[in-house]
C-alpha cells in the first residue's frame, strides 16, 4: 500500500462558549493516493468541520493531521497557507468564484499566487484545465455568465490549478441538478483514477454509494 496522502489521528475540535460543543470527536481516518472517499452524515454531524480540519483551514484541539506524512499541528498560519496553496484543492457548494475575474483568471489565481510560473504561463495552464473539463469556450466569461454546473467545474479547475495531490470538496453537488451532479461525480472519479486523493462531504447518498469509500460521521464521531 502506498503512503497515505492524508492521515487524521484522534482529531478533536470543540467550540468553546457558554455551551461547549464538540464538532469532531477523536476522528481517525486515512486516505491514500487514488482514494475517492465520501463523508456522509446527518446535518450538523461535523462533516464540514472534519473537512476543514483535514484541509488545514482549522486547527484541532486534540490529535494530529498528517499531510503526506508531515504533522501539521505545529505549523504556523503562513506555513499551513503555503501547504494549502501547493498541496490541497478546495471545492465548495457555492463555488465561490471571484465575480470580478473571468473563469480563466479565477483558475489562474492560485497559480499566480504560488508564483512559480509567469502570468502568461498561468493563464495557459488555466485554459488547459478548463478545456480538460469541457469549458474551453467559457474561459473568458465572468462567473455571472456561467450556469451552476459550469461554475462548479470552473471551481474544480481552480482547485486543481497547482496540481495538488489532495482534493477536498464540501457538498459540491448541493446546488446542482442531476445532470450537472453526474458530470461533477465523473470528474472526481476520473481525478481519483489519475492518482489524486478525493475527499467529498455530501448529503447525496447516490453520490456516496458510487464513491470508492464511505466514512460516516454522527455527532462528530466516525462510525464506520
Amino acid at each position: 500500500m502506498s503512503e497515505a496522502v492524508l492521515r487524521a489521528v484522534d482529531v478533536t475540535r470543540r467550540l468553546r462558549g457558554d455551551v461547549p460543543v464538540t464538532l469532531v470527536d477523536s476522528a481517525t481516518m486515512e486516505a491514500a493516493p487514488g482514494d475517492f472517499i465520501a463523508i456522509t452524515g446527518p446535518s450538523g454531524s461535523g462533516k464540514s468541520s472534519l473537512l476543514y480540519l483535514l484541509g488545514l483551514l482549522d486547527r484541532p484541539d486534540g490529535g494530529e493531521v498528517f499531510l503526506q506524512g508531515e504533522p501539521t499541528s505545529g505549523l504556523s498560519d503562513s506555513q499551513r497557507a503555503a501547504l494549502r496553496l501547493a498541496r490541497i484543492g478546495f471545492v465548495f457548494q457555492s463555488y465561490f468564484l471571484l465575480p470580478e475575474f473571468t473563469a480563466a483568471e479565477n483558475v489562474a489565481m492560485p497559480i499566480r499566487r504560488l508564483g512559480r510560473v509567469t502570468g502568461d504561463a498561468a493563464m495557459a495552464r488555466a485554459a488547459a484545465l478548463l478545456a480538460s473539463l469541457g469549458l474551453a469556450d467559457q474561459a473568458r466569461r465572468f462567473p455571472r455568465q456561467l450556469s451552476g454546473g459550469q461554475s462548479q467545474r470552473v471551481a474544480i479547475a481552480r482547485a486543481l490549478a497547482n496540481d495538488p495531490p489532495l482534493l477536498l470538496a464540501d457538498e459540491p453537488t448541493g446546488n446542482l441538478d442531476s445532470r450537472a451532479s453526474a458530470l461533477v461525480f465523473e470528474i472526481f472519479e476520473r481525478l481519483a483514477k489519475e492518482g489524486r486523493t478525493v475527499v467529498v462531504v455530501t448529503h447525496d447518498m447516490d453520490f456516496a454509494r458510487r464513491a470508492g469509500r464511505n466514512v460516516r460521521i454522527v455527532d462528530g464521531r466516525i462510525t464506520d
Binding site: 498560519d77 497557507a81 503555503a82 496553496l85 471571484l98 465575480p99 499566487r113
Partner: peptide
C-alpha cells in the same frame, strides 16, 4: 467576506 475567505482557503495570506 466570502471572496476573502476563499482566497485565504486557497492559500493567500492575510498580508496578501
Amino acid at each position: 467576506q466570502r471572496d476573502i475567505a476563499i482566497l485565504k482557503a486557497m492559500g493567500f495570506l492575510g498580508r496578501d
